[in-house]
Design a protein around this nucleic acid. Structure first.
Length: 288
DNA sequence: TGCGTTGTTTCACC
DNA sequence: CGGTGAAACAACGC
């Protein structure tokens, strides 16, 4: 499911292959993706040239020459496929529809055609994702309104985050999923971070030692970088298709932990499917 | 066919 | 008002 690394991959592909190109046409087949868009039509982007591609948390922002921006949130299953005129294809986000198959897929809801023949196919088998078109001048305020915390990449203020963690009684997994605490983690990468730090996902944050809390914070950018390096994780119907052992635990129930050989288990934390190694990640001691 | 799926929001309650 | 947990919501595949 598209989390920070998948969205960042879409952003990088867009930066590399779409900047400087002008939109000739947009075929919007599912107009409800604009349900929350300040500007309710894609017509305003016809003739616009892409000037920049940025990202905040899991939101991709494409800035166009006409003073307008397109915000894209992939939610559970959004996919951004760029088809180059010379035949190459770059796919970021959800692995369905399969990149090797023909496009447009049944779930391809929008097609953007650029002046040089480059095509973007936006697909979403769940239809939960959204687009918002607005004045570029309004983007920063719109992003602020989400209340995102610090980005899960780059320099994190480990001291401050460790301290906040120490005051919260909720399961550490739930806290790491809170976008106002740290922005960019989702269900896959939280499981990966906690496996790396060897902490059980259900442990109340304040019950984790300072050393371990710091280890968790430090693991976050590392796991993000690994995800970005691979162009995102590939998980289809709760089954992982790992590359170089990544993801290590998420969606790998019944497989063995690469560190200790113990069978990976699945449980629920905060109503979310949660994968962990019962040996590396000891469950919290429940006081009676 | 009803359940599972996740990112995000909302709600009730302390 | 903030912390918390639960529920709701979106739509689809199995």
């Amino acid at each position: 499911m598209p989390e920070l690394p998948e969205v960042e991959t879409a952003r990088r592909y867009s930066e590399q292959f779409l900047i400087g190109k002008r939109i000739d046409r947009i075929d919007l087949r599912l107009s409800k993706i604009l349900r929350d868009s300040p500007i309710p039509t894609t017509d305003v982007l016809i003739g616009a040239t892409l000037m920049g591609a940025r990202r905040r948390a899991k939101v991709m922002v494409l800035d166009f020459s006409v003073g307008l921006s397109l915000l894209v949130h992939f939610k559970l299953a959004g996919q951004w496929a760029i088809l180059l005129p010379e035949g190459g294809r770059l796919v970021a986000g959800h692995p369905v529809p399969k990149p090797e198959n023909e496009y447009p897929h049944k779930a391809t809801h929008a097609t953007i055609t650029f002046d040089d023949g480059t095509v973007v196919q936006y697909s979403d088998i769940r239809q939960f994702g959204w687009w918002r078109i607005m004045d570029t001048a309004d983007v920063d305020a719109a992003l602020m309104a989400f209340g995102f915390g610090p980005e899960a990449v780059g320099d994190l203020n480990a001291g401050a985050l460790t301290e906040i963690m120490g005051r919260r009684g909720i399961p550490v997994k739930t806290l790491l999923l809170d976008q106002s605490f740290i922005a960019g983690l989702g269900n896959i990468y939280v499981d990966e971070v906690l496996w790396r730090a060897r902490v059980h996902p259900a442990t109340p944050a304040r019950d984790i030692s300072t050393v371990k809390r710091r280890a968790i914070i430090r693991a976050i950018p590392d796991v993000m970088a690994e995800g970005i390096r691979q162009g995102g994780a590939k998980i289809i119907h709760t089954v992982a298709y790992p590359d170089n052992g990544f993801p290590a635990v998420h969606a790998r129930e019944g497989e063995v932990c690469s560190r200790c050989g113990t069978v990976i288990r699945k449980t629920r934390v905060g109503a979310r499917g949660t994968y962990f190694c019962p040996k590396c990640q000891k469950p919290p001691i429940v006081k009676s």
